[in-house]
């Protein structure tokens, strides 16, 4: 075996032995990014990311949920200005927690509520107690409309652009600062 060959062999061996370190290093950096992303909210391993944004609203009809009136897909498709759809329930603590934020928000954009798997009297009770931010309210007693929307839990909100296009979606409560910021950005974009 020539000297050069031997040297090549040794170099290759050294490179091979460094591979585990490189692999672990890449994983380490990735984990660090994930951890820091989890703190800022940029990375969430529990996110489902239902592919709804950019799509037209699905077909659905919702019956009245007192004190509001129900609505259907056609109502959203004939919109002239954006509307925020908000799935909520009286048995859901984060929904109650975001009510104040919704009451503030309704001055900016009309909010249409969907009572998810809720008894009409309970949903009505909540709105009487906490205030009613919704312009219209439909009842999804069986939770089937929610499935068509890709809803996996409450609260969940969708911004509908004129024409019935879903342009923004969040599975987090609107009492969260970051969520509101991103909603505002989406609203400005729609207005333009």
């Amino acid at each position: 075996m020539s000297d050069e060959q031997q040297r090549n062999n040794v170099t290759r061996r050294r490179l091979m032995m460094g591979l585990p370190l490189v692999g672990a290093g890449v994983c380490g950096v990735a984990f660090w990014k994930m951890l820091s992303g989890m703190q800022t909210g940029a990375f969430n391993p529990h996110d489902i990311n239902a592919p709804v944004t950019g799509r037209p609203v699905p077909d659905f009809t919702l019956v009245d949920q007192p004190p509001g009136t129900g609505f259907a897909a056609a109502d959203l498709r004939t919109l002239k200005s954006p509307v925020l759809i908000n799935f909520f329930a009286s048995w859901c603590i984060p929904c109650i927690a975001e009510m104040q934020a919704l009451l503030d928000l309704q001055k900016q954009v009309p909010i249409w509520g969907v009572a998810y798997k809720d008894k009409p009297e309970n949903a009505a009770g909540l709105l009487k107690h906490a205030g009613n931010p919704y312009a219209r309210i439909g009842s999804d007693r069986e939770g089937r409309v929610a499935i068509d929307w890709g809803v996996s839990g409450v609260p969940e909100s969708f911004l509908i652009a004129p024409g019935g296009l879903i342009v923004w979606h969040s599975a987090a409560g609107l009492d969260n600062e970051d969520v509101r910021t991103s909603l505002n950005a989406a609203l400005t974009k729609v207005a333009r």
């Binding site: 050294r14 032995m17 585990p20 370190l21 672990a24 290093g25 380490g28």
Partner: peptide, 9 residues
Amino acid sequence: IGGSLVLFA
């Protein structure tokens, strides 16, 4: 882990 793999390399 990193330390031991550096030593290994």
